[in-house]
Design a protein around this nucleic acid. Structure first.
Length: 217
DNA sequence: CACCAGGAATGTA
DNA sequence: TACATTCATGGT
């Protein structure tokens, strides 16, 4: 089932170390909640710089109605890859929001809202939790493969990937929305800079933590 | 040339 | 439940 290694609060130490080194990241980069959700779909398995191109291409029609009325949506989101799927997913998201306006969704309890978001085709756990955290400001931690890899290296987690297990482990330690926002963003930024190709690098701000444990990845 | 990016749905055993 | 495959552009 689950296998947790650390009894001590390595998570808080890790968070503080990353925050001190990189500074606040100010995620999510979006002008409004809908743009944030669109970005969450478009960034699936794609770099953010490609998402920025697509966002620019659809900037004039960034409303649920605008997306549904856009005739060449596929071409506009093409830079993000998987463009046929993503165009369809943006339409799924848009029709969902027409049926469930944002202000109504904002009144729904977090657990129930999470299930609603997961019912949208194209919205999986990570995307749903990103939306919950950054668009609805709910205290949810976004787990990704970077998190898993980092936690393995830091000895915080051991064993197979377990999304909910890792999520609850973090949410037990870090409870405020602002901190959860920063933590996920910091993990992504750190992973992009240091952990992408080789396991350990010089000048890695958490080199000492990662060297403690270095098992299977 | 190979490999990966701020995943999710679907199929297979 | 646990993997494998598909989707696809763009950068290194």
């Amino acid at each position: 089932m689950i296998s947790v290694v650390s009894g001590i609060n390595t998570i808080k130490i890790l968070f503080r170390r990353l925050l001190d080194f990189y500074g606040p990241q100010g995620w999510w980069p979006a002008d409004n909640p809908f743009e944030m959700m669109v970005g969450a779909i478009l960034t699936q398995n794609t770099t953010w710089r490609n998402v920025e191109k697509a966002i620019k291409n659809i900037k004039e029609c960034l409303t649920p109605k605008g997306i549904l009325e856009c005739l060449d949506l596929e071409e506009r989101v093409r830079p993000t890859g998987f463009y046929r799927q993503k165009a369809e997913r943006l339409r799924e998201l848009s029709s969902f929001l027409l049926e469930h306006p944002f202000d109504e969704l904002a009144k729904i309890p977090t657990n129930q809202l999470r299930k609603l978001l997961l019912s949208i085709k194209g919205v999986g756990k990570e995307t749903a939790d990103s939306i919950l955290l950054y668009a609805f400001e709910r205290p949810i931690f976004v787990v990704d493969k970077y998190t898993y890899r980092l936690f393995l290296r830091a000895g915080i987690w051991e064993g197979p990937f377990d999304y909910e297990g890792i999520r609850h482990l973090v949410e037990k330690e870090i409870r405020t929305v602002e901190e959860l926002k920063e933590f996920h963003a910091l993990i992504v930024e750190h992973s992009k800079q240091f952990c992408r190709k080789r396991p350990l690098c010089e000048n890695c701000p958490i080199k000492d933590i990662c060297q403690k444990k270095f098992g299977k990845e």
